[in-house]
Design a protein around this nucleic acid. Structure first.
Length: 763
DNA sequence: GCTTAGGTTTTG
């Protein structure tokens, strides 16, 4: 019983070589040059194996090209294939009608049956060592056969001639002990990989398929990334080369040599995207069909008893649940415990436990405002999960499995000082061990659940932007402060001498004037620091918020003028892309300009969206001052494309990034609100443009604010600041009022080693 | 080199 699979391993030999070029069947003629060419189609007819004497066979089969142009008649896209010798025998035994077939090393002849069968006027003939064949099986075979290498000497020659990539998938109910098989199934239980006492990580699964048999599966592998990427129950899994084994009277599956795994989202209708770290796995349209069949079947089976994923808004105390969330910050607690601060944008009806940690041990954004809004969940991760959790970076998206909602105060040492009574507040524990699938993992940003979560989190920040207290900041024109800036001294280290005064005195003296004050930071806005990023126009002085473009359909366009100069890739026009798509494309090209093309002329979008993407940076244009050039000649004589030359070429008045914050200062005599705007970049030692694109720059701003106003700190704990204040008058609706701005002040010295602009040493 | 785990709640 020879089974024909010669190479069933995921080695390079099973890949269709990339240099082969496919010929559409309708274009085949007896004069076609067939060297290095392939023909592909579905097997629509498979004739009997005809013996012509000892070890000599002939077999006729018909394949039909499925993706031929629609106006081609079917007779031109279907062709006879004649197979000779051992190849015919192997084909007969391993290929079925409905399989997808790709052949190479063929010759083209005239089809003697063209008149009769009305198929292609030519046929393909395959014989000898040059003929190769790749087969993708169309359906899950009910046979419990196992692909394996031929061993008889006679077959060795055949193996040179044929390569058949064919996997047979065995229904779980048909598994017999002691064989290596491939299976397709739906995951009904899983544990994220955990360390064993041996050399490997272990994943424990329970799977089922249409045969309704439930089978346990244990995966050992020393590389985490080669473990199945299972995100939730109901995911579809494809296992290659797993070994059946009797354990406690039942069949179970275990990894065997050459094991590989691919998983898929289990939701009916979601795209069939294989999740794998392997670069050489096989995946064809037949796999799509199997995945979809399993999804549809599982959808009617109630395999997953209750939805384990619960948002914070629906968490019940004392229950276990799965949480899908974004990581805000982490802090190590001790060797067997790590704190994760997370949110999912939903508001928990029960008060959430706050866990205070030393700010210098916290990695990630401040969560103060979200803490106050009862949005931040504090998750304590114990024992075996600590190793996993400490790899996570703030901002990433997580799923935490079997999280325990525990009412009552945390017993963390830092919490014992008793600032507030948190009895009954909900804390979350990921206990040690792996019972009930306890564990946690990062989910990719493009997985369906995370796309949903992102939408929720975005909605949340948009509603936050409309916070009325922020309007005051935005409507204040900071550029209108009056007195000569040169007279304003810097902080205490400056040579300028202005008598230091109290905040009460600043208010009583009024503008226009410059003051030296010593004060502490009482509060600041915006708490979400990315909201401090503003765009402003040097020409007309307007300030805007960065915004994003809506979804459209996507077209890549290139400038014909640039193409003529061989520079087409330096400036790409992109039509109808979403923000996310644009960002992806921007990582591959130096300059991306989103456009619309009404009446066929390329026009930059209205300037509420970036007009240019350069790498991670986005550039905006002023709506009032830009005079867009439509369909005009582009960039004559431009040698270097950067944001300025692109803006010039498009007629865009480039907006500059700026940082705008409102700081509430206090000293013993009172409090006063001051803006940080004109000198914000030197204050923070970052450029606003960097802060718009670079997490590290944003972190630096955050660190500075955390030093001035440590999260959870009392007033007494906050440092004093030497500040230069400029007082000026603003006219609004005919009303004049005093405004204050912090100028010529920077935070150098507070933590000099972290500042790239710190004074150079003498060496 | 060829085991490891084999679902079923920490005790913070």
């Amino acid at each position: 019983m020879p089974v024909l699979v010669v190479k069933d391993g995921p080695g390079p030999g099973t890949q269709v070589p990339a240099q082969l070029q496919r010929i559409p069947i309708p274009l085949l003629s007896p004069t076609s040059d067939c060297t290095g060419k392939t023909v592909k189609g579905r097997v629509v007819h498979k004739g009997p194996l005809v013996s012509m004497g000892e070890d000599n066979y002939v077999l006729k089969t018909v394949i039909q090209e499925e993706d031929s142009q629609q106006n081609m008649s079917p007779e031109h896209s279907s062709i006879n294939i004649i197979l000779f010798g051992a190849l015919a025998k192997d084909y007969s035994e391993s290929v079925s009608q409905g399989d997808m077939l790709l052949v190479t090393g063929f010759t083209v002849g005239n089809s003697p049956t063209a008149q009769k069968d009305k198929l292609h006027a030519c046929n393909l003939q395959l014989a000898g060592d040059d003929a190769w064949m790749y087969v993708w099986p169309s359906t899950v075979s009910p046979r419990a056969s196992v692909p394996r290498k031929r061993t008889s000497p006679a077959s060795t020659e055949v193996t040179k001639a044929v390569k058949v990539v064919k996997y047979t998938y065995v229904p779980l109910s048909d598994l017999k002990p002691g064989v290596v098989v491939n299976v397709y199934a739906v995951v009904t239980f899983f544990k994220q990989p955990f360390r064993t006492k041996g050399t490997d990580y272990c994943s424990t699964l329970k799977i089922t398929d249409q045969s309704n048999k439930k089978v346990g599966c244990t995966i050992f592998c020393d590389k985490l990334e080669e473990h199945p990427k299972i995100f939730k129950m109901g995911d579809v899994i494809r296992l290659h080369r797993v070994k059946t084994q009797l354990f406690n009277g039942a069949i179970s599956l275990l990894t065997s040599h050459g094991f590989s795994v691919v998983t898929f989202d289990g939701m009916v209708g979601s795209p069939v995207v294989p999740r794998t770290s392997s670069g050489s796995f096989k995946f064809g349209e037949e796999d799509c069909q199997v995945v979809e069949a399993l999804r549809t079947w599982a959808a009617n089976q109630s395999l997953v008893p209750a939805e384990p994923c619960v948002p914070l808004s629906a968490v019940q105390p004392k229950t276990y649940f799965d949480l899908t969330c974004q990581l805000l910050a982490t802090a190590p607690v001790d060797s067997s415990c790590t704190l994760l601060k997370v949110w999912d944008g939903s508001k928990c009806p029960h008060p959430l436990l706050d866990v205070f940690v030393e700010p210098n041990t916290l990695e990630g954004s401040p969560t103060l405002s979200k803490d106050m809004a009862n949005l931040t969940a504090n998750v304590l991760v114990y024992d075996n999960h600590v190793e996993v959790a400490r790899q996570f970076k703030p901002g990433s998206y997580l799923r935490i499995y079997n999280l325990h909602a525990v009412p009552g105060a945390s017993r963390l040492p830092s919490n014992d000082s008793g600032q507030s009574d948190q009895t009954g507040h909900l804390g979350f524990h990921l206990h040690g061990g792996t019972s009930y699938g306890r564990g946690l993992r990062v989910l990719p940003e493009d997985s369906p659940d995370i796309l949903d979560l992102k939408r929720i989190l975005e909605t949340f920040s948009e509603s936050d932007i409309n916070d009325s207290s922020m309007f005051e900041v935005w409507s204040t024109p900071p550029e209108s402060f009056g007195t000569a800036p040169d007279e304003i001294a810097t902080e205490r280290t400056c040579d300028h001498t202005v008598e230091q005064v109290s905040l009460a005195e600043v208010k009583s003296r009024g503008p226009p004037q410059v003051f030296h004050v010593q004060a502490q930071l009482k509060s600041y806005q915006p708490q979400r620091l990315y909201q401090s990023l503003k765009l402003f126009c040097h020409k007309c002085k307007t300030i805007e918020l960065p915004s994003e473009s809506p979804s459209r359909t996507l077209t890549l366009l290139m400038s014909s003028q640039l193409m003529g100069k061989g520079k087409a890739k330096e400036l790409i026009f992109l039509k109808g892309a979403t923000l996310e798509e644009t960002c992806r494309i921007a990582s591959a090209y130096s300059n991306i300009v989103p456009v619309t093309s009404p009446q066929g002329t390329m026009t930059p979008l209205d300037l509420s969206a970036p007009f240019l993407f350069r790498g991670t940076k986005r550039y905006y244009g002023c709506k009032q001052c830009s005079q867009l050039k439509v369909g005009e000649s582009l960039g004559e004589g431009v040698e270097v494309w950067d944001e300025k030359s692109v803006a010039d070429a498009l007629g865009v008045q480039l907006l500059q990034y700026g940082l705008l914050m409102k700081l509430e200062l206090q000293d013993g005599t009172g409090s006063l609100e001051a803006l940080l705007w004109r000198d914000a970049e030197s204050f923070f030692h970052v450029s606003a443009e960097d802060a718009a694109a670079d997490q590290e720059a944003q972190d630096r701003v955050q660190e500075t604010m955390d030093r001035l106003c440590p999260p959870g700190s009392s007033t007494a704990e906050r440092p004093w600041m030497d500040l230069c204040l400029s007082a000026y008058t603003v006219e609004e609706n005919g009303q004049r009022r005093a405004c204050y701005q912090i100028c010529h002040t920077d935070t150098r010295g507070t933590n000099p080693h972290t500042h790239p602009y710190a004074a150079p040493s003498d060496t």
